[in-house]
Design a protein around this nucleic acid. Sequence first.
DNA 1: TCTGGGGTCCTAGGACCC
DNA 2: TCTGGGGTCCTAGGACCC
Length: 415
Amino acid sequence: MIGLADCNNFYASCERVFNPKIKGKPVVVLSNNDGCVIARSNEAKALNIKMGEPAFKIKPILQKHKVHIFSTNFALYGDLSERVMNTLKSEINKVEVYSIDEAFLDFSDFSSFDRAMSIRKKVKQWTGIPISIGIAPTKTLAKVANHIAKKSTKEGVFVLRERDITRSLQHLAVEDIWGVGRRNAFKLKQYGVYTALDFTNVNIEWLRRKFSINAVRLQKELKGERCYELELKKTKKKNICTSRSFGKETNNYNIIKQAVSNFANTCAVKLRNERSCCYKISVFLMTNRHKASAVQHFPYITLNFNTPTSDSFEIVSKANIALQTIYNNACIYKKAGVIVQSIVSENEVQASLFDTIDRKKRNRLMCSIDKINMLMGRDKIRLAAQGFDRKWKLKQEKLSPCYTTRFSDILSVNI
DNA sequence: TCTGGGGTCCTAGGACCC
DNA sequence: TCTGGGGTCCTAGGACCC
């Protein structure tokens, strides 16, 4: 059997761990720039606050019910996620960390309701985060089991046995199947497929023809045939993207250049952490698509490196060449981003015949910079192009302390 | 006033080869 | 009159996930 452990309302729960005052109260966490609701406590869900809703649209509800609002604090969530995963690993040998708040667990040795309950209790006790566990024969069914654990059990644990599969699928809407999104749910309903059970009953050839190979796999998984195994090896990323909306829209070239330089540098740092190099870099800009009256412009350009690189100097300067090409000062931009692509492992780099850079020396320099920044704080050493004033930076008005990752933010206790 | 960020996989179609 | 068949590789766009 495969288990799926999923943290309940993860970001909202993180905010509560070190702030007991907000227990039992409605809590929402907003996306970057304090834009949309991306996490809700049960009390906030009960107020009918929807996932992804722009905060400014529901301001009256938030005020009326005294909802506690937080900006995203990824330093906190990332750290608590690691604690949860480590606790799971202390109980289960094979754990696939699937996302910041989810992990697949190998229950092939023995799976029981009681074992899952004790794991759940341990995670709560050790980290303060409540989780739900669903257990079933395949990953997709484990997702179903988790769904049931969250919605219909008091304990937060559900074991989906073979004999109960049909009954469970009957009560699961087709759009709630893992891997069926909005588009395909709409399409399926047009053909009269409304529940997960309906989905398991459609002709497999028809499914292959009308949808994709994934739909076929999905059907098999729902019937208990395993198509997806646990992925225990960490794989290298194939693309790395850093992008942000600006706190304030702008057409100022220098501000945008600073932002793009910072995003490009972050991509380079991420590449070096992965021990990878990239062949290509793309830069994009976006105007505010919600503003009907504004001139819209979504330029995007990709440039190549002759030799794959993770060098900040090269990546940032190439990003700036790209920016120069696509920037148009008649437009007010809302967002910019840098993507590095065609990624290869750093020990598989094929150098260009005409390469002129002393790469060994540059690598040592980058290593030193990374080390110093690790010890002394992010961007302590930076490229001049990154600048200091950060006029493009995001809005984060409701940021909670980094309780676990910054010395000055550690809680003090009065006895 | 105000609307997120970071990924993966699949497919169709174009360009090219012999 | 009449215009093939079998491939590979790359890319953009779509769909999905959290």
